[in-house]
Amino acid sequence: MTFLQFFFRFFISLLHGWRPTIARLLVLVLGLSCVLMGAAPAWAGLNDDHYDGNIFALYAGNGSLFPPRVTLAESLQRDKPVVLAFFIDDSRDCKLYASVLSQIDAFYGRAANLIPVNADTILPNSTYSPTEPGYYYKGFVPQTVILDQSGQVVFDEIGNIAYEQADDVLREVFDLLPRSESVELKRRPINEFNTELVN
C-alpha cells in the first residue's frame, strides 16, 4: 500500500468517523502544505514571462504557424518573399507579438512564407549561411526580418512591431498600392450566403 492509498483510507475513515472536524483540519493543512511546497499550478498569462505553451495557439489563435511549413532554404529556392520571426515562448513581448504574426499570415500567408523561429534553437558563436535563420538573428526577441523574392533583406526590426509596419514593406515587395490608396478588404458575413439563397 502506497502512502497516498494509506492517507486516502485514513481520510475516509475520519470523514465517516466521530471527528469530522479533525478531518477538515487535516485537509486544510494538506492543502496549505501543497501550495507552500510548490504543488500549486503555475499561473501564466499574456502579460508575464512564464512559459505556458505554443504562444501562437494560445495568444494568436493560429497554432499552425509553428512549426513552420517550409524552411528558409526551401522558400528561397522558390523565389518567395520570407518573413522571419524570431521568438521565444516565455517572453511577454513575444506573446504580444504572436497576434501580429497571425495578421501577417492572414493577409500574406499564400504569397509569402512566414517562418517563426524559436531563438532558443540558434546556437551562439556558430557560423550560419544566408539560407539559415541563424544568419539573420541579432540576439534579441522578438525580431522581424523580411526578405524579398531575391533573398535581399528589406526589413529588419527588433522589438514588437505594428502590423502596419510589415504591411507597408510587403506592399512594396509585392508592388501593391499603398494602404491609403487601396480598398479595405472585408470578409463576408457568414450568413450572407444564406440570405442570398433565400432572396
Rank of each mutant, 00 (worst) to 15 (best):
R24Y: 13
R24I: 15
L26N: 03
L26P: 09
L26T: 04
V27I: 15
L28W: 11
L28V: 14
L30D: 03
L30C: 10
L30R: 06
L30Y: 09
L30E: 06
G31R: 04
G31N: 00
C34Q: 08
C34L: 15
V35F: 11
V35Q: 04
G38Y: 04
A39P: 04
A39Y: 15
A42R: 14
A42E: 14
W43A: 12
D48H: 05
D49H: 10
H50M: 14
Y51E: 09
D52Q: 08
G53Q: 06
G53S: 04
N54C: 00
I55Y: 00
F56P: 00
A57C: 01
A57L: 08
L58W: 01
Y59T: 05
A60D: 02
G61A: 02
G61M: 07
G61I: 00
S64I: 09
S64Y: 08
P67I: 03
P67S: 02
P67N: 00
R69I: 03
V70E: 13
T71W: 09
A73F: 10
A73C: 03
L76Q: 15
Q77S: 12
Q77Y: 10
R78M: 09
D79H: 15
D79S: 14
K80N: 07
K80M: 11
P81R: 04
V83Y: 00
V83M: 02
L84F: 02
F86I: 01
I88Y: 06
D89H: 13
D90A: 10
R92N: 10
C94T: 11
C94W: 01
K95M: 05
K95R: 02
